[in-house]
């Protein structure tokens, strides 16, 4: 069953087309990754799906409920942890959890019981009665995740759940998410991290400039690359024609899966790239162009991203636009 179905979704802020006609579906019980650089439209999409924002056009159905027709129905079915954590720093972790539980209709007793259980699962039991303002970044993110879980939602929406975390905390978060998914939770997560998408997502959509540029499982996407890739860069003092000369030489090779010029480099896709380096170097040599750098890479999401967007995905740990300015700009 499809738990999320999005068809032709658009969202504009004035002249800015933050989401520019996207469609996708998420199967129950899977982890769906939304991978893209800063400003791609991830947060905008997720805010529409959890009813915090209204789309300009298109439809979104979550848990069988249309987000525009019955937003409250959607709210009771989804859990959401925002990119910037949403916790009350003056309350303890436990109080934060109980508050969310109560707001989602749990009785006092149920909210306490659930809070107790989740605190255990998410390894916050020891600090549960400390003010959330004293939590480290990793603990705050985990508390935020716990808050999204307290009412046992059908779908979990996580906006960059590990951005800003150190590798240790990131790994811990991955473990929790995988565990939740093993227990049946459907998860929609956005990320700027290739490894994260690779590690967690059953299905993946790469989003750039408000559009989905490619979609599939990480394995499929990597297979779509056409084998290993060899990236060739001419030495720094070479000209634009040199790049073309190199590309032409590479196109003349047999048994490649494609040659592309990307930025100031030429990329050759071929099977078993390691065994053909010598052949490639010889071919460049005969053109007389000075080779500056050569890189051999197995198919990776990095390559997938590069191939479909023409740029490398660089993580900028730029702060997301503050909620205040975002709200102020909201129309």
């Amino acid at each position: 069953m499809k738990l999320i179905e999005v068809v032709d979704l658009y969202k504009s802020f004035g002249d800015v087309r933050a989401v520019n006609g996207i469609s996708f579906a998420v199967e129950e019980g899977t982890i769906f990754g939304f991978l893209g650089p800063n400003g791609a439209g991830k947060t905008t999409t997720i805010r529409i799906l959890v009813t915090l924002s209204e789309q300009t056009s298109g439809t979104a159905i979550v848990g069988g409920v249309d987000v525009s027709a019955d937003p409250r129905g959607v709210r009771s079915r989804v859990g959401y942890a925002a990119q910037a954590t949403g916790i009350d720093r003056d309350l303890t972790g436990r109080e934060n959890l109980i508050l969310q539980g109560r707001l989602h209709g749990l009785s006092k007793v149920d909210a306490s019981t659930e809070a107790e259980a989740i605190l255990e699962v998410i390894s916050l039991a020891e600090v549960a009665d400390r003010r959330a303002g004293t939590y480290s970044g990793g603990m705050a993110k985990r508390l935020d995740l716990a808050q999204a879980l307290i009412h046992r939602p059908n779908v979990l929406f996580l906006d960059e759940p590990t951005t800003g975390l150190d590798p240790q905390n990131r790994n811990a978060m991955w473990t929790y998410l995988r565990k939740l998914n093993d227990d049946g939770m459907t998860i929609f997560l956005t990320t700027q991290y290739l490894e994260e998408a690779d590690e967690l997502a059953d299905d993946l959509a790469i989003i750039d400039n408000g559009r989905i540029v490619v979609e599939g499982s990480p394995t499929e996407l990597k297979r779509g690359i056409g084998g290993d890739s060899v990236t060739l860069m001419p030495s720094t003092d070479s000209s634009a024609e040199d790049l073309e000369v190199m590309a032409t030489a590479m196109r003349a090779l047999h048994d490649t899966n494609g040659v592309e010029k990307l930025g100031d480099s030429v990329v050759v896709y071929l099977e078993d790239g390691g065994s053909r380096i010598a052949e490639i170097v010889r071919a460049i040599d005969t053109t007389g162009v000075q080779l500056g750098r050569l890189e051999l890479a197995e198919p990776s999401l990095d390559q997938v991203f590069l191939k479909h967007t023409g740029a490398r995905l660089r993580v900028e740990d730029v702060k997301p636009p503050s909620r205040m300015s975002r709200n102020r700009r909201h129309r």
Partner: peptide, 15 residues
């Protein structure tokens, strides 16, 4: 509440 993200937390609850 707006700054801390608590407003959003209230808004996503079915209240």
């Amino acid at each position: 509440d707006v700054e801390d993200g608590m407003l959003d937390k209230f808004l996503i609850a079915p209240v």
